[in-house]
Design a protein around this nucleic acid. Structure first.
Lengths: 141, 141
DNA sequence: ACGATTTCAAGAATCGTTCTCATTCTCATG
DNA sequence: CATGAGAATGAGAACGATTCTTGAAATCGT
């Protein structure tokens, strides 16, 4: 079961009708392993001869975010990025280069445990978290 | 040595001249313990009978961020917030309520250690990091 | 005090994002 | 299969946060 089919199923169950634009966004996202901005999605679909209104991209991302199928990533540059959220709860965090703006992913189980422990003590029912490390990448340093 | 005087010194050393607007922003920030948006700073200064152009607020924040005197916090709602960065490197992270938008601070030494450990293995020279936990606060849950 | 340069405020401009609305499409029902 | 109610779409307008521009005032070295 890929993320793409899972996402389409969940959208279905949530009562969304089949729409070409939303489906195109889901399929493009399913092919990514890290985050994309709305503009990059828009451009990617146009390049793939499947042009979609930018408003539809935002609408699709809003619906997907609402259903926790995609995660919104804020790299600190004022541009929201989005990436598929695997159904098994697995996820990663981000490393942003302050100079060239490159965004990379990393994972660390110990970090996850530390976060879970903190989340338990807050009084919030934390259902999402994000870690962003900012610095100079190997090329820019 | 308060953060306010420290910040004014660093600005001085960096070649910035004394300007009323920047000073007003620094003094207001120095009185905060958590993050404020540019608009909140603008409103706060106007209320304090020290009106300042919104552009000057942004310019001051840009200079302060550049010098690492303030930290930009992105709570995921599209509004950038800013808070003083204590000179001793001490810092905290944020807890955002998905429903009411409230932003609170928390600290956790174990989390810091986990992050430092991860940062060392990345190949980046990480000089800043941010953790945002999102969920429902006690009131909204 | 003078001149060079910075800082300032106000408004215009920009950019990412959201809204509006007329049209097209989907799908449960006849 | 045809229909109609309502969802989805795309184009462009609107929006809000942020940045740029401009001419005037403040600051600092001399």
């Amino acid at each position: 079961m890929t993320w793409t089919t899972h996402a389409l199923d969940v959208l279905d169950d949530a009562g969304y009708r089949r729409g070409g634009a939303r489906r195109a966004v889901v399929e493009l996202l399913g092919r990514q392993n890290c985050c994309l901005s709305a503009q990059e999605i828009f451009d990617g679909l146009r390049k793939a001869r499947r042009p979609v209104g930018i408003a539809s991209v935002y609408r699709a991302l809003e619906a997907l975010t609402e259903l926790r199928l995609v995660k919104r990533v804020d790299a600190g540059d004022g541009i929201a990025r989005y990436e598929p959220a695997p159904p098994d709860g697995d996820h990663h965090h981000h490393l942003v280069c302050r100079d060239c703006g490159k965004v990379e992913a990393f994972t660390d189980p110990r970090l996850e445990r530390a976060i879970d422990r903190v989340a338990d003590g807050t009084g919030y029912s934390v259902d999402e978290h994000e870690v962003v490390l900012t610095g100079a990448c190997a090329d820019c340093a």
